[in-house]
Design a protein around this nucleic acid. Structure first.
Lengths: 336, 336
DNA sequence: TACAAGCACTTAACCGGTTTAGCGTCAAGC
DNA sequence: GCTTGACGCTAAACCGGTTAAGTGCTTGTA
């Protein structure tokens, strides 16, 4: 029950494996008649070329890699990554490229992974997420001369191409919405400032709020539900509590909602809540959570497309995602 | 900047690549002195064998595959799969095996994927999840003679080894808990009966509740938050509404909680809620959701271990997971 | 002294593809 | 009639490893 090879086909047709290879790859050098016989037999026995043999001659593996180094127990990453993965897959599936997907404990593990994959020629490139300020991965990838595309932030990616989102426009939309509702003291609960996207969001948030004449507070933590709940409690129990909070993720927003309810603060009359990422989770709570909606799968697909181009020797430019959409639901309302 | 090969090392040491291969693999046939020089050089230039070349001679790819065929937009799968993936990875990482991970649109796509992976020799085996009654995948995998391990259910896996969970014991715990709290009319909102785990849970639920003298209702749907919310509304608005509902997933439970609150039914005094899978999501709602907790990552790791054994020609037996633990939180209480 | 046994290494084949050079055949062109 | 060129295919090398068989040298032994 061995898998059929070129030689098997060659034997049955009565030619050499070289002829079979040419025929199957649409190269000139075989007559139409012979080509047809070869294709017929190949089809009949269900021939598929060995990926290993292909990889060996082509000098490329036909696979890309993606590593995430947040631990699996942190809630709140699943939504985003599943959608991103889904988008990447749809792009790669049509091109016979597979995706190696792994989780790492920390940045060092992740870098080790990259070096190993590259040295073993297991992947032709990687997609990098969660870029940090002074991210060591960028330097390593540049040094290895390894094709890589960054997803998320417009900054800090060195020479690597980027699929970036316009966080400033997003902040503008949210603050506009809240200001229209009469809010004057707003807060934001986000991720650590070491992540570029957090840092950029924080900067935009403070700046744009100031322009609109709103006072702000910002809390930064580990993206976990627990952190968001704690930060929410602190904000609500402070001297002058905010009347609206923007959370960096859907899970944090839902955790904040839970905490507000626990403290007897009604939403939205006592507190408006807005979530950065949208998901089904935002729709199923009571009240449903107002959220910034963007097409994460599309970003993943674009990143995969750029990486394919890069692995083929090209140099794709950066790509800016379309501005997100603000989906207004029950969790945001006029100051009560 | 080519990656170093055996020949590069051989040239520098002054031997042939055969000697280098023997030395690096710890085979006899090279003197201790030569072996040491070879290892030193290999280490110095950071030699790693090409996975493609290895795969070609070894006749195996050094990779396993996992396909999920629920669409990415269905919320509620992320928790489970991220934990499962994480467990699989930890087991495989130490053995230089990688994981190909893909999403499919439906069972046919998934089967196509298996056939393609196997024909191209991209994977040495697969992990199968979400087994259905009369699942066509099992037959295909058996026919292909492709190593595969099933995660989830004790039934319907044909000749494939299984990592299974004892749903009956779990149901017993939940019903015992609810009966102790004085509940007499309970319901369950689960997945479609075409999935083995749903079917088995439904059977156990009805049977064990009957033994305990409780009346039951069961709703089956697509595992989505929207479905769970709708089913909850129907149950609560029925003639004789249940006083407790068991949901098949954390997301469904949270959706049910949201719906109850929307309808003005207070939890737990008006309705007790229990979730089958536990996650941070269950902790962050108000009230927090009572849940069955099990170690999904451990199950993933076990499945990976069994698959490694199987790919090596062994025949691992089935493995039963330890019984889950019932984590009682605020969403379940005495009948009010 | 001769022969066998071991050791350390090389040669060469193999895995399953791709690719280049070369060879025989045939028809067109001068 | 002879060259030229195109065509259709084969032979062989190559990718980067692994491995069985073979070779030359040293050592032990009858």
């Amino acid at each position: 029950m061995r898998q059929p090879t070129l030689v098997d086909i060659a034997r049955r047709v009565g030619v050499t494996k070289a002829a079979v290879s040419l025929a199957l790859n649409g190269q000139p050098g075989v007559s139409a008649a012979t080509r047809e016989r070869i294709l017929a037999i190949a089809n009949e026995i269900g021939f598929q070329p060995s990926s290993a043999a292909r990889a060996l001659t082509a000098g490329r593996s036909g696979a890309f890699g993606l590593v995430i180094d947040r631990p699996a127990r942190t809630l709140g990453i699943e939504q985003y990554f599943m959608q991103l993965l889904s988008g990447i897959q749809t792009e790669l599936a049509g091109h016979h490229v597979t995706l190696l997907f792994t989780m790492a404990e920390n940045a060092d593990d992740e870098i080790r992974m990259y070096r190993q994959w590259w040295a073993q020629r297991r992947v032709d490139g990687v997609i990098v997420v969660d870029l940090q300020v002074n991210d060591r991965r960028v330097g390593v990838l540049e040094e290895l001369n390894m094709p890589a595309v960054v997803v998320g932030t417009p900054r800090g990616s060195g020479s690597l191409p980027v699929v970036w989102q316009d966080d400033q426009a997003a902040v503008q939309m949210v603050i506009g919405h809240l200001a229209d509702l009469g809010h004057r003291r707003i807060a934001r609960v986000g991720g650590y400032g070491k992540y570029w996207h957090s840092a950029l969001r924080s900067a935009s948030f403070t700046e744009i709020a100031a322009e609109a004449g709103l006072s702000t507070a910002t809390a930064e933590g580990d993206y976990s539900a627990g952190y968001a709940a704690g930060a929410t409690r602190e904000l609500l129990e402070s001297e002058r509590p905010p009347t609206a909070i923007l959370y960096d993720s859907d899970v944090m927003a839902v955790a904040g909602l839970g905490m507000a309810q626990r403290l007897g603060v009604s939403v939205p009359s006592g507190l408006s809540i807005v979530s950065w990422d949208d998901s089904a989770l935002c729709e199923l709570t009571h009240p449903a959570v107002t959220a910034l909606h963007r097409d994460i799968a599309a970003a993943g697909a674009m990143a995969a497309r750029m990486l394919r181009k890069m692995a083929a020797g090209g140099a794709p430019g950066n790509f800016g995602e379309p501005a997100p959409e603000l989906v207004v639901r029950g969790s945001s309302g006029p100051v009560g």
